[in-house]
């Protein structure tokens, strides 16, 4: 049986007949790629917006991506790792290792400003140092009340606006 030709790099390498080592993508380029990987549960923000990518570096020719979990029981963690691997392999990264880093523990302080803005535009109130949303993400009213400390995912709480009466998710501050 004839071996099927697999698509991807091998084909490219064969075609170019190159014996030189392929150049490894720049670290900054890898960060750009990761910036395009959405959070699986809140796809409006990316993994870098969330602040869970702690480091991108090479150890010899192996790319090491260090990731910290948001919550220890967050079911998205394994999907996030899978998404990172899929994205980077799609960009041709072959030698890749994902490392889990627990300390320092993830904090919502690491969320980027653009991540916060995107959350709010999406209807999720971004985390606030005061421990609660400063305003309703729908109508902007400051009259809000907590319904439950837990929401649709471990990272969110349920709040309600007493002006427009709409319930909304608040990204908890931890």
């Amino acid at each position: 049986m004839a071996a099927a030709r697999l698509p991807g790099r091998n084909v490219v390498n064969d075609r170019e007949h190159t014996s030189a080592e392929p150049t490894l993508p720049e670290v900054a380029q890898v960060w750009d790629w990761l910036h395009a990987v959405p959070d699986p549960e809140i796809p409006v923000i990316s993994l870098t917006d969330l602040g869970i990518i702690r480091d991108v570096a090479y150890e010899e020719d192996t790319l090491i991506v260090t990731v910290t979990p948001t919550y220890s029981g967050c079911p998205a963690t394994s999907i996030i790792n899978l998404d990172i691997e899929t994205a980077l392999r799609g960009h041709g990264v072959e030698k890749l290792e994902l490392r889990r880093q627990l300390s320092p523990a993830w904090t919502t302080d690491w969320m980027t400003q653009s991540g916060r803005d995107k959350l709010e535009a999406y209807g999720i109130a971004p985390p606030q140092p005061a421990g609660g949303p400063d305003k309703c993400p729908h109508c902007g009213s400051q009259h809000v009340e907590k319904m439950s400390q837990f929401g649709s995912t471990p990272c969110k709480a349920q709040w309600r606006c007493t002006a427009c009466l709409e319930p909304f998710d608040y990204f908890k501050c931890i």
């Binding site: 967050c74 079911p75 439950s148 837990f150 471990p154």
Partner: peptide, 11 residues
Amino acid sequence: IALANTALDLI
């Protein structure tokens, strides 16, 4: 939801 989330954290 709160109970399920608490269980999830514990697991």
